[in-house]
């Protein structure tokens, strides 16, 4: 059976350490709407791999530092 994963992220924390970068600023840097950043931050939307890499690139960290997968069970 396929294991279930829950994807969480540290975008809020990373924005804070990036001089309190606003959601709008991040959205403009990665080329999406602010609503998409809000949805990603709230864990309601899982971005494509490309967008995930772009977000990580903005903060200058690896993708694993931005997004984590929590194993929910089998």
């Amino acid at each position: 059976m396929v294991k279930k994963f829950e994807i969480s992220n540290n975008i809020r924390r990373l924005r804070f350490f990036a001089s309190e970068m606003t959601q709008q600023e991040l959205a403009e840097k990665v080329g999406v709407s602010r609503q998409t950043i809000i949805a990603i931050e709230a864990g309601k939307y899982s971005p494509t791999l490309e967008l995930a890499f772009r977000i990580a690139d903005v903060f200058g960290v690896g993708i694993g530092e931005v997004f984590q997968c929590d194993l929910k069970g089998e």
Partner: peptide
Amino acid sequence: KREMVEDERD
């Protein structure tokens, strides 16, 4: 431009 952005979620 900000309002009219269409991205992968849209």
